[in-house]
């Protein structure tokens, strides 16, 4: 039996593989605080969203979360739950933010909004399930600062990639 695949499937697979590779690289980097990570794999999600469409970006992001957790041996662990809730919430925000007028809002806006949604999703899981008392509140400012800084950097990289690509097309 052979599954018929379309060129869309191939594209999603390729891009997801790339996102997974970035996720793996990041897993090797030491983190100053559990949960504070640059999230460079999100560059791929953003790039795909701006270059293709929301559905492709959602596929790439969710596939990346599942495959990476399998590769790192974290499938269905709290780490996986954090990763998935962050990805789902930031996809939700991206799905809305992509309708913002393109003239005024570029990749950087999307990236920062998605980064904040990401920590929002993670903190929700932490608060509701992992550490159900208020002491998490102390960490929120640190996470928010990380979201701003890394969201900005990832956004700038994505903007650069999109620019480069557009110049290629012309």
């Amino acid at each position: 039996m052979q599954i018929q695949t379309t060129s869309d499937d191939h594209r999603i697979a390729k891009l997801a593989a790339f996102a997974i590779a970035l996720h793996m690289v990041e897993a090797l980097l030491p983190s100053p605080l559990p949960g504070v990570k640059p999230g460079i794999a999100n560059i791929v999600t953003l790039y795909v969203l701006l270059r293709y469409n929301f559905a492709t970006a959602a596929w790439v992001s969710i596939l990346r979360v599942f495959a990476s957790s399998l590769l790192l041996g974290q499938f269905l662990s709290p780490t996986f739950a954090l990763s998935l809730s962050g990805a789902i919430l930031s996809l939700g925000v991206l799905g809305l933010a992509v309708h913002l007028p393109k003239r005024y809002f570029g990749a950087v806006s999307l990236s920062i909004l998605a980064a904040f949604a990401h920590i929002g999703g993670q903190l929700l899981v932490v608060r509701l399930w992992l550490i159900p008392h208020a002491s998490v509140a102390y960490l929120i400012p640190v996470f928010a600062l990380a979201a701003l800084v890394f969201g900005l950097i990832n956004g700038l990289i994505t903007a650069q990639l999109i620019n480069k690509h557009q110049r290629h097309d012309q």
Partner: peptide, 21 residues
């Protein structure tokens, strides 16, 4: 190139950066 893309930030981007800060 990153520096170059900072100059391409749009007004909404600056707004998002300011509000987040």
């Amino acid at each position: 190139q990153i520096k170059n893309s900072i100059t391409h930030l749009r007004i909404g981007d600056w707004l998002v950066i300011a509000i987040s800060s």
